[in-house]
Write a protein that binds this DNA or RNA. Structure first.
Length: 585
RNA sequence: GCGCCCGUAGCUCAGCUGGAUAGAGCGCAGCCCUCCGGAGGCUGAGGUCAGAGGUUCGAAUCCGCUCGGGCGCACCA
């Protein structure tokens, strides 16, 4: 409908152009939008308001001329001039009814589109370090990222979901060392636990598993472990130096066995993360290993590419990327003085890899604390000879946890954090996903556990699910009365749906594809949620105002067709959010 | 200090590529079918859209400034 109106307006403007009333070379962006107030009709356009200035006339006069030049169309029963120069369109109700057979015909496919035209999009999200279980902060990125990916797929993009596994950095060495130290404790050794090590219970569990499986294989005398170490922080030393010294000690004492401990820790945690996300309705096409980039020469290759472009230089014993030439605020180290690659170096390689795989668009979803990282990645992409407009970075603000008024402090290192799994167990997958996606991603999210865990039906997800369950209940009632819906008869009598609530529902149903497309293209899942709440609300209102199971069979079937269409759209929307679609509650 | 995000009803937030009277949920005060599920619906109170300017037919929306909150400014990841 929107496209139809757009075409009509274009035609009218061209007519005026030719007849010399208007003289325009280009048509500026005009908007056609749905009216909030039914008195204003169904759609409104601001063409006249926008064009008044270039046409050197006042909006209302111009609107009248456009009105006069507007071709007639069978679906439009009335067009009128309103307010400062809006043109309002009133749609023929018969055209509105068409949405019901359309929904019945397309079913789950209703709302899907091809605007993405099969373009290949890669979406990378979560990518939390595999140094511990996911916590509630990661949960937001997971919910947001997976819905964005699903939305893009729904509107015709070919979507590739990816988790970048940071399995190569120093943090992983800290984890491996933490596991080993806990293992030594399992063996009966007594030692001071480093202030900078990972102290969560999961570390002990991994250590316990290793001890069970391998006995004292990895045990070393505690005196040699602690011999000549620098002081840890509580003793007035530097916690970073201390943990680094311990990592070296672990590698030295364990030799090739160090790798076992490292791999066991990594594998265990990664499996946990994968299962956790899967249970949360989040799945990937690929888990991409950072270590692989190191091993197969990708990092070297990417850096060589930068070197060939003249973007690398040596200084103070390190190798620098001249990112400041490409919009970054300063240059960045890619190879440290000690010869090791920085995290950024492998990330350059990763993005190089993404580009080489031929994606039309690359979407990185990061925590908002990484925003300062964006310019250097863009610089890298340009230095690699690619167009950095291929990269879209979406930032997700942190979710703060509260128990009532009290903020829950979270730190992976300290072990005091609420995991995503705990959250799911407490509030359920549906509520968790809904809560996470209900806000704009750039908005800080206060997640009150007390509120979310209280089973007092305050949760908005129930509201939408209940609308669906209610339709199902109506259909059960129909069955219990020994009646059946005659869809055919209902379709033939759609014109008997003339109540205000029914007309409003028709309009809202036909809006679904637009809402979905907008939510997808703007990467804003919350728009879909708001749409679903609106639809559910209109349904509940209708339900309270009118009886569906009336004696008049043609009217009854028409209403049931409408209500089934609502059910279908609710199911489609909830399905996209990976929220369950209950038939009873 | 510099950069990014944010400031809308008592609370939590929509609305932001400028458009008609700024919306919703929760909370609060009332009310609703002997009839399809009351996890619902209806009505009401509640707003200087942080502040003061600018752009224009029109600003919560765009621009610069001030104030307030969050985050980031590593040879960490």
């Amino acid at each position: 409908m929107k496209q139809t109106i757009d075409a009509l307006i274009l035609q009218a403007v061209e007519t005026l152009n030719i007849s010399g009333v208007l003289e325009l070379n280009t048509l500026p962006m005009i908007t056609i939008e749905r009216c909030r107030d039914p008195q204003h009709g169904d759609f409104a356009t601001n063409v006249a308001l926008i064009l008044a200035k270039p046409a050197k006339t006042n909006p209302r006069q111009l609107a009248e001329k456009i009105l006069a030049a507007l071709p007639a169309h069978k679906s439009i029963i009335k067009v009128e001039l309103a307010g400062p120069g809006f043109i309002n369109f009133f749609i023929n109700p018969d055209a509105q009814y068409a949405v019901i057979p359309k929904i019945h015909e397309l079913g789950r496919g209703f709302g899907l589109s091809r605007v993405g035209a099969g373009k290949k999009v890669q979406v990378e999200f979560v990518s939390a370090n595999p140094t511990g279980p996911l916590h509630v902060g990661h949960g937001r990125g997971a919910a947001y990222g997976s819905v964005v990916a699903d939305l893009l797929q729904a509107v015709g993009f070919e979507v590739h979901r990816e988790y970048y596994v940071n399995d190569a950095g120093r943090q992983m060495d800290i984890l491996a060392t933490s596991v080993w130290l806990r293992y030594l404790e399992e063996c009966g050794e007594v030692l001071p636990f480093p202030s900078n090590a990972y102290r969560g219970d999961y570390v002990r569990e991994i250590a316990g598993d290793i001890h069970k499986a391998s006995g004292d294989n990895y045990r070393r005398p505690i005196a040699t472990v602690l011999e000549n170490l620098p002081a840890d922080e509580p003793q007035g030393g530097d916690k970073e130096l201390y943990i680094d010294a311990l990592i070296d000690r672990a590698k030295t004492l364990l030799g090739s066995l160090y790798r076992d401990v490292f791999q066991t820790g990594l594998k265990t945690i990664l499996q946990d993360i994968e299962a956790d996300l899967s249970e949360f309705g989040v799945n990937y096409q690929l888990w991409f290993s950072e270590q692989q980039l190191m091993d197969d020469g990708s990092v070297e290759k990417a850096l060589n590419r930068l070197r060939e472009g003249g973007y690398l230089y040596e200084q103070d014993g390190a190798t620098w990327f001249a990112s400041s030439q490409l919009g970054d605020e300063k240059d960045r180290v890619v190879i440290r003085e000690n010869g090791q690659y920085t995290y950024f170096a492998s990330d350059i390689a990763y993005h190089h890899h993404k580009l080489e795989r031929g994606f039309d668009q690359i979407i990185d979803i990061w925590g908002a604390d990484h925003h300062g990282y964006i310019p250097r990645v863009r610089a890298a992409i340009r230095a690699l000879g690619a167009d950095d407009s291929k990269l879209t970075v979406l930032l997700v603000q942190f979710a703060s946890l509260y128990r009532g008024d009290e903020k829950v402090s979270m730190s992976t290192r300290s072990g005091e954090f609420v995991t995503l799994r705990q959250l799911r167990n407490e509030v359920g997958k549906d509520a968790a996903r809904f809560f996470y996606a209900i806000r704009r991603s750039e908005q800080h999210l206060d997640f009150d556990l007390k509120l979310a865990t209280s089973k007092t039906n305050e949760n908005p997800v129930f509201y939408v699910q209940y609308a669906h369950a209610r339709v199902c209940s109506v259909l059960r009632q129909l069955d219990e009365k020994g009646l059946a819906r005659n869809a055919q008869l209902g379709m033939e009598n759609l014109t008997s749906l003339i109540e205000e609530h029914e007309v409003a529902l028709l309009s809202t149903l036909s809006r679904y594809p637009e809402a979905l497309e907008k939510a997808a293209l703007q990467y804003e899942p919350h728009q879909l949620i708001h749409y679903l709440r609106d639809l559910a609300h209109e349904f509940h209102t209708y339900y309270n105002a009118h009886q569906f199971l009336v004696d008049d069979a043609p009217l009854r079937d028409a209403r049931l067709n409408l209500v089934c269409a609502v059910k279908q759209v609710l199911a489609n929307g909830l399905g996209l959010l990976a929220i369950s679609i209950p038939e009873t509650m």
